[in-house]
């Protein structure tokens, strides 16, 4: 299930480091090794741990479950997803 919107836990701590840009590159740096939802433009979802990506948004994932219409249709120990199919990559645990 998609996690609820994350509380803003940055406000009480010191301001983010000057390197904070919010850029796609930085998002990807933060999300590697985390549990993610990858949705393809076809609507199929892959949930698993993001191993790595490249500039084409090709993705390697571990412990991957494939969801079609909300039910698990396949499981893969490792999976390579070709980047052109990717609609989004969403963090499924707090970053």
């Amino acid at each position: 299930m998609a996690s609820p919107p994350l509380p803003d836990d940055r406000s009480p701590v010191p301001p983010p480091p000057p390197s904070f840009t919010g850029s796609p590159t930085e998002f990807l740096k933060n999300v590697v090794g985390k549990y993610v939802i990858v949705r393809l433009s076809s609507g199929v979802d892959y949930r698993g741990v993001l191993s790595c990506l490249d500039g084409y948004m090709n993705i390697a994932m571990e412990q991957t479950e494939e969801y079609v219409n909300g039910s698990v249709t396949n499981q893969y120990g490792d999976a390579f997803i070709r980047g052109n199919n990717v609609l989004y990559i969403s963090a499924a645990e707090p970053l």
Partner: peptide, 14 residues
């Protein structure tokens, strides 16, 4: 042909 590929899953490396 590469443009048709959605996903490649290798054999389990467990």
């Amino acid at each position: 042909r590469g443009d048709g590929v959605i996903l490649v899953s290798p054999p389990s490396r467990a």
